[in-house]
């Protein structure tokens, strides 16, 4: 897979990852086009989250390379990733619970020029009107859905070129899941952000994605254009580990 073709978007080149020296994810290669949504689906424990966590420094990066905008970002400290345009939303502990909504957003814009922060917070509050009414509320007291929207808004503060989302709908109500998956995420990608989405809810995720990767036991078993995935039986077989 050629790096130059991908433009701003992230490219994973035979990445291996794990914990404490144990390899959990083996040799994963994939790319996300600019302004596109790629999703990784697969059974529980397949290593989907580990792949993301290896990039963000919360799991061990054991081999391969990750590129973003033509630069290698595999081994740089996680607090420099955002400077390269990579933002992410972890599955849990996704907000600063004792800080207010506004403070969460301001901290998201830590690297923005001082003068630009307030304007950028206002922009994001326009994008996420649900948050606009609760800027002085402490994040720990938000509902699950509000909290997830805040986490995404926080990640978007520095206008990243790529966004990693680790199971954003875990624990959300069906309405909130709909709002996040069918409404907010497609809008983000339309604005040019490359999104890599890890999801447990495979069908909903595939419905909004342009490309689908199925991960089983740490290996990508199948990669398809989302609109090609019509044969649900095949998907089910891949899920169950039959090639």
């Amino acid at each position: 897979m050629s790096v130059s073709d991908a433009g701003e978007a992230p490219v994973f080149d035979s990445v291996s990852a794990g914990y404490g020296g144990h390899e959990v994810v083996h040799d994963v290669s994939l790319a996300v086009g600019q302004g596109q949504i790629a999703c990784i689906v697969g059974p529980n424990g397949a290593g989907k989250s580990t792949l993301l966590r290896a990039i963000t420094g919360d799991a061990q990066f054991l081999g391969g390379r990750v590129w973003l905008g033509g630069e290698e970002i595999s081994r740089i400290p996680s607090n420099r990733l955002i400077k390269r345009g990579l933002a992410w939303v972890p599955q849990v502990d996704d907000v600063f619970t004792t800080l207010t909504v506004r403070e969460n957003l301001e901290l998201g814009g830590f690297l923005l020029p001082r003068k630009g922060v307030a304007a950028r917070v206002d922009e994001l509050l326009d994008t996420f009107p649900l948050l606009a009414g609760m800027t002085s509320r402490v994040a720990g007291r938000l509902s699950g859905g509000e909290r997830k929207l805040l986490a995404i808004a926080r990640a978007l503060m520095p206008a990243p070129s790529a966004l990693l989302l680790d199971e954003p709908t875990a624990g959300l109500s069906p309405e909130m899941t709909g709002l996040v998956l069918q409404n907010q995420i497609p809008r983000l990608s339309a604005s040019g952000v490359a999104i890599l989405l890890v999801e447990q809810r495979a069908l909903e995720a595939i419905a909004v994605s342009s490309r689908v990767h199925v991960m089983v036991s740490g290996v990508i078993r199948a990669s398809r254009e989302a609109h090609e995935v019509t044969d649900w039986d095949e998907l089910a077989r891949v899920f169950l580990g039959e090639q």
Binding site: S78, A87, D93, E103, E106, L111
Partner: peptide, 22 residues
């Protein structure tokens, strides 16, 4: 800014790094 970063770091170091806090 650094005060908020300090509070953020105290509550969630991993997320503070995600925001680019040194």
């Amino acid at each position: 800014r650094v005060g908020k970063a300090m509070r953020g770091l105290a509550i969630n170091a991993s997320l503070a790094r995600a925001c680019g806090v040194p």
